[in-house]
C-alpha cells in the first residue's frame, strides 16, 4: 500500500518531468501530471484485476485520449500538450530494453519474446488512442443533432 502511494506520486512527477523536457507551457504542467496519474491508475487497476497485457494498456491509452480532449476544451489548448506526458508511464521501457539487451547478448529467442510484448503493448495503446478519437468524433457529430440532444 505504501509503495502504491509512492508510485502514484512518482507517476505525477514523471508527467511533470517530461513536460519540462518538451517545454510545455507553465499552466499546462500540473494538468499534464494529473493526466498521467489518471491514466496510470486505470492501467494499474485493470492490470491487477483482469491481468494480461492488452486490456490495461488499451484502457490506459483510451483514458489519456478522452481526458486530454476534455482538458483541451476546458483550457483552450491543443490536446497534444496533455497526451504526450500522459503516455510516459505506459511506455514499455522495460521490455524494449530487454529486447535490445538480449539481441546484444545473442539470445535471439528471448529477444523475440520481449519484442512481441513491446509490439503488443504499443499496439494496444495506439488502439486506445484510436477509440478515444472515434468517441470524440461521435461526440462532435451528436452536438449537431436537432433539438440540442447532444448537450
Amino acid at each position: 500500500m505504501n509503495l502504491f502511494i509512492i508510485k502514484c506520486i512518482c507517476v505525477y512527477f514523471s508527467g511533470i518531468g517530461f513536460g519540462l523536457i518538451v517545454n510545455l507551457p507553465h499552466r499546462a504542467l500540473n494538468v499534464a501530471g494529473i493526466t498521467a496519474t489518471l491514466s496510470w491508475l486505470v492501467y494499474y487497476v485493470i492490470i491487477n484485476t483482469w491481468g494480461g497485457l492488452g486490456a490495461p494498456n488499451f484502457f490506459g491509452g483510451l483514458t489519456i485520449g478522452l481526458v486530454s480532449v476534455v482538458i483541451a476544451h476546458i483550457k483552450k489548448m491543443p490536446s497534444i500538450l496533455f497526451d504526450v506526458p500522459g503516455l510516459v508511464p505506459l511506455v514499455p521501457g522495460g521490455q524494449a530494453y530487454n529486447t535490445i539487451k538480449n539481441f546484444a547478448l545473442g539470445d535471439y529467442q528471448v529477444a523475440f519474446n520481449y519484442l512481441s510484448e513491446v509490439v503488443w503493448i504499443a499496439g494496444s495503446i495506439a488502439l486506445g488512442f484510436i477509440v478515444a478519437e472515434l468517441i470524440n468524433k461521435i461526440r462532435i457529430k451528436i452536438k449537431y443533432l436537432p433539438f440540442g440532444w447532444g448537450k
Binding site: I6, K7, S14, G17, L20
Partner: peptide, 15 residues
C-alpha cells in the same frame, strides 16, 4: 530541463 529529465528517470524506475 535537466532536472525534468532526472525526474522522469528516477520516478519511472520506481513505477
Amino acid at each position: 530541463q535537466t532536472l525534468g529529465a532526472g525526474l522522469v528517470s528516477g520516478t519511472l524506475v520506481v513505477v
